[in-house]
Amino acid sequence: MAYSDKVLDHYQNPRNVGSLDKNAPDVGTGVVGAPECGDVMKLQIKVGDDGRILDAKFKTYGCGSAIASSSLATEWLKGTTVDAAAQIKNTQIVEELSLPPVKIHCSVLAEDAIKAAIEDWRKKNAAAQGATEGAAGAKP
């Protein structure tokens, strides 16, 4: 059997499909693509003040493995910390879903999407932090 039940399950009942407000300061958005197969993956995280990921949503246009990879990723993201999320590796997704070698690039895409979303959130946050610090610094 080439596709595990887990892949099929995530493909048929994808978790956390949808969008978050990409302009909200506590939301990080990552959009990545694999041009050779025409897959696109959008992954968003909503981060709480304590650095925990409160919510995660995705939209993926691509094959079943790509959908399953991003669906699984959002499941893992919810409730974990941003720092722990940054450690997620594509190999873990491959292992969990038993992806065949030809579909490994789908898991890479999911890892890239997580990283891009975290980077986006950090950028927004650093800007906000910088602004606060700046304001604080201005106070004598």
Binding site: V31, G33, K59
Partner: peptide, 17 residues
Amino acid sequence: NKKLDPAFLADALELAE
């Protein structure tokens, strides 16, 4: 040169939708 601009990709996703 496979890395494309995220804004372009977001548009592509919307088109697909």
